[in-house]
Design a protein around this nucleic acid. Structure first.
Lengths: 114, 114
DNA sequence: TTCGTATTTAACGCACCTGTTACATAACAG
DNA sequence: CTGTTATGTAACAGGTGCGTTAAATACGAA
């Protein structure tokens, strides 16, 4: 049983190197060499990161002579945005409660509960 | 070097069981037993999932007699929403291009490129 | 104290992730 | 064909993730 798309996307995003690759690609396509340069890890390692991103559908690869340019495909992120939006009310509520609490402290009530 | 908060959050969300737990908690706090019931896995396994969620700051635990109720804390999801929003333009662009392509086909142009 | 319920921790197995280095492929250039 | 450049694959090592069962712990009740 292989993981669902959302799990695939989330786990692809769970690595800072891969997120940095996506950010770079958001400025335009790049070769594997160009993507490797900013990092202190070997090209095979980047190649595998790209494979993970490709499996999650987050990048698309073409061919151009001996280069295999990588392009961003952000469509799987729509599902992520969708998923997280269902919780917006919850975190905004939490922030508001925190604000109210801080305001209470400001008014000079050092015994404010919660 | 331990992972940054965003990586921690993403990897916590990369498991369907954990996402289901969060969804259940969005309806209110629950005990570990209540959280285990809907799943076909053992309570120790759920306990570990909760530990992952707790480490990511997505749940908070209290104590009530021999129960340790679990509560949702959605605030780390704000960072996720923030991160993914930066790509909204990209995936919307991709969807629009797809729509345009389909419309082109509709008009009876079977040779439409891209 | 002793028992019962709720939950965590320990110990294990297995699979996967992420990096390395060395080698294999693919495609252009001469 | 041969060499060079760009990239992928193989083989290995160490760490981590996720499940199991069995044993420990925490608290309330009798």
């Amino acid at each position: 049983m292989q993981p669902d798309q959302l799990s695939l996307t989330f786990s692809a995003l769970a690595d800072p190197t891969r997120r940095a690759i996506l950010q770079r690609l958001s400025e335009g396509e790049a070769s594997v060499g160009e993507l490797t340069a900013p990092f202190a890890i070997s090209m095979p390692a980047i190649s595998r990161h790209l494979k993970v991103l490709e499996r999650a559908g987050l990048v698309v690869r073409t061919r151009n002579a001996q280069w295999r340019p990588v392009q961003l495909n952000a469509t799987p992120l729509a599902e992520v945005a969708n998923w997280v939006e269902r919780y917006r009310g919850h975190w905004q509520g939490a922030f508001e409660r925190m604000d109210a609490y801080l305001a209470e402290l400001q008014k000079g009530d050092p015994d404010a509960k919660h």
